[in-house]
Design a protein around this nucleic acid. Structure first.
Lengths: 239, 239
DNA sequence: GCAATAGTGTCTTTAAGACACTATCAT
DNA sequence: ATGATAGTGTCTTAAAGACACTATTGC
C-alpha cells in the first residue's frame, strides 16, 4: 500500500484512452423580432466550412472550470460577458466527432443584441442566425441537436421565470419584456399576467426615466443588481 | 488546404493536455423511512478509504455515451438498471481531484431498495447511506456538493412530477407514493392533492390486486409501460 | 363495534386568463 | 380631439390546500 502523495507522483493521466472534451455554447439574442443564435463558420478541420457553435477546448492552464471556458470563448466572439449563462447538458459518444469518442459540455446563454453588435460585426467568422433560418445552413457535428435542446430549455424556463429579461438592454420597458417573451414562446401572452409576475418577482427597479415608443411614454426598468432570478411556482400558458 | 480525411489521418488527440474525465452517479432509494444514497468505499488511490459516488472512467471502447458509462457503473454495484436516470450537471476545475484538472459528468438515479438489496449486500464496498448520515462520513473529492445538487434537483422535480414513483417497487399503493414523496420533500403533503395528480398523470394502471397494510386493503398500481413521466404546470407546496 | 387506513366530496385559496376599462402622449 | 400605446380593475377559471366525510378491513 502506497500513500496518496507517492501515488500522485507516479500518476500518468495519458496512460488511458480518453475522450476528446470540448465546451460549446448556444448564445441567444433577439433582433428584429426574431430569436437568433450565434454561429461560427468553421475555419479549420474537421467540418471546415460548416457552421458550429462558439466553443472549443478547455485550456487547463487558464480555465478554472468549463464555465470559464464557455465565457472565454463567448467573449472572444462577442467582446462581452453574457447576461445569463447556465449549463444545459453534455453530449457524448463515439460518432458525433470524426476525430473519435468525444464529449461536449453544452451551455446556453443570453445577451442583448446591442451589447455585442459592433464587436460581432468586426469578427468575420461569427454571425447571428435566426432560429427559423437554421435549417437552411450546414451545421457541424450534432450542433443542431444541441441548439434544439437549448431552445427547449429556454422556452420551458421562460414559462416559469422572467428569463427573457436577460436578453434585453440594460434598461427596458415592460412592453419590450412582453415582446421578448412572445418571440421566445412563439405566441402572445396576456400583458396583465406578465406585469403581475414582473411586480411579484422583485427583480426590477425603475430608472425614473421613460421613453416614447410611438404613443404614450413607457417607464424604463433595470434588473436590480445582485438579485437572483425569481422562479414562479406555476407555468404561463399551462394548457 | 487539406481534406478532412487527410486531416483525420494525422490527428493525434493526445497532443494537447486534456482534463481527466469521469462519470459519477447519485443513486437514491428509500429504506426504512429514510432517503438514502449509494456510496462506495474507495479501495484505491486517490482518496483511498473515503466514501465516493459510484462511477469511474469512460471506457471508450465499450460505452456509447456517458449515460452508458453511468449505467455500467451502477449495474456493477447494484446488479440492475435504475428505474430513473437523468443527467444532473458537470463539475470541473483544477482543484477537485488531486491528479489534476478534472471534469465529472454527474447523473442522478432512482431505484427501489428491494430491487438491489441482495446484490448490494454481496458487494462489500457499496453501502446505502441515509442522507441525514452523510455528514458523519468522510466524502471523497467534491462528492458532497454533487449529492447536494442532486438532492435539490430531486426535490424540485418531486414538486412538479410524480418522480418518487421511480423509487418504489414494481407494484405499489398510493399511500406508498405519498410516503415516498413526503420523505423526499421532508414534509407532509395533502393526500387529496397527490391522488388528483396521480389520476391526471395517466402514468399508472391498476394491477387488480390489493394489499392489506394494517387496516383496509389498498389497491396496487404499476407504472404503465413506455409512458413518459408527466410534468405538471404547478408546484406542490408552492409557498 | 371499533380502530385504522383507504379513498371521496367539496369548500377555500391562489395565481393565471380574459378582457374591458382608464391614462398619457404625439400629432 | 383622436388614435395609439401604457397601464389598471375585476371577473372567470384551473388546480392546489384544507378538511370533513364515507368505505373497507382485521380484530
Amino acid at each position: 500500500m502506497i500513500s496518496e502523495a507517492e501515488y500522485l507522483k507516479n500518476y500518468d493521466a495519458s496512460r488511458f484512452p480518453a475522450p476528446l472534451v470540448t465546451v460549446d455554447s448556444v448564445l441567444f439574442t433577439l433582433h428584429q423580432g426574431a430569436l437568433c443564435v450565434l454561429m461560427v463558420k468553421r475555419a479549420s478541420q474537421p467540418q471546415q466550412g460548416r457552421w458550429g457553435l462558439p466553443g472549443g477546448f478547455i485550456d487547463i492552464a487558464r480555465d478554472t472550470s468549463t464555465r470559464a471556458t464557455a465565457l472565454r470563448k463567448l467573449t472572444e466572439k462577442t467582446g462581452v460577458s453574457p447576461s445569463w449563462l447556465e449549463q444545459l447538458d453534455t453530449f457524448s459518444g463515439p460518432q458525433r466527432d470524426p476525430r473519435g469518442w468525444s464529449l461536449t459540455v453544452a451551455w446556453y446563454a443570453l445577451i442583448a443584441w446591442a451589447d455585442c453588435a459592433p464587436h460581432i460585426a468586426s469578427v468575420s467568422d461569427a454571425r447571428w442566425i435566426a432560429v427559423s433560418e437554421l435549417e437552411k445552413i450546414e451545421l457541424a457535428f450534432d450542433h443542431g441537436a444541441i441548439i434544439q435542446a437549448a431552445l427547449h430549455r429556454l422556452r420551458q424556463k421562460t414559462m416559469y421565470s422572467l428569463l427573457p429579461a436577460y436578453c434585453l438592454p440594460e434598461t427596458f420597458t415592460q412592453s419590450q419584456l412582453q415582446e421578448a417573451t412572445e418571440i421566445i414562446l412563439g405566441q402572445s401572452i396576456q400583458r396583465k399576467s406578465l406585469i403581475r409576475r414582473f411586480e411579484a418577482s422583485g427583480m426590477f427597479e425603475e430608472t425614473g426615466e421613460s421613453v416614447a415608443t410611438g404613443a404614450r411614454k413607457a417607464r424604463l426598468w433595470r434588473r436590480k443588481p445582485n438579485v437572483d432570478i425569481h422562479l414562479f411556482s406555476r407555468n404561463l400558458l399551462a394548457d
